[in-house]
Design a protein around this nucleic acid. Structure first.
Length: 111
DNA sequence: AGAATGACGCTGA
DNA sequence: TTCAGCGCCATTC
């Protein structure tokens, strides 16, 4: 069952604009759970597919898709979805995170 | 209740 | 830049 934590994660992920990326740690921090980046990963793991949440826009701070056998290949699906968003993903799962970094618009008039 | 695991992050080598 | 180790914290056995 999706716990409140999971709902918060989905809510934040849903705020990520198309073509932009966010990290697990960033999501965790936005929901007030700094240091719980792993829990964010679990929330996405429990996320059934297909889902209305753009989970594919969430990657690790290393700027690479977390390729893990526990995902039953959903990691490669994420790569396909990112390519569809216009984000070039390397065969090793690496992507231009710095160029597509999503910045939560909660700051006063950026810049 | 205790120990092990995990879609992570950071620092050091 | 890549690899290894340690730390955080909730979930699972």
């Amino acid at each position: 069952m999706a716990s409140g934590f999971d709902q918060q994660v989905y809510a934040v992920v849903a705020r990520i604009p198309a073509g932009q990326l966010a990290t697990y740690g960033q999501i965790a921090e936005l929901i007030g759970a700094y240091g719980c980046a792993r829990q964010v990963g679990w929330a996405l793991r429990r996320l059934p597919l297909p889902s209305a949440v753009p989970w594919h826009r969430v990657v690790n701070a290393q700027g690479r898709i977390t390729m893990c056998p526990s995902r039953e290949g959903s990691d490669w699906m994420q790569r396909e979805l990112l390519l569809a968003e216009g984000i070039p993903v390397d065969a090793e799962g690496r992507l231009p995170l710095r160029a597509h970094r999503w910045v939560a618009e909660v700051l006063p008039a950026g810049r």
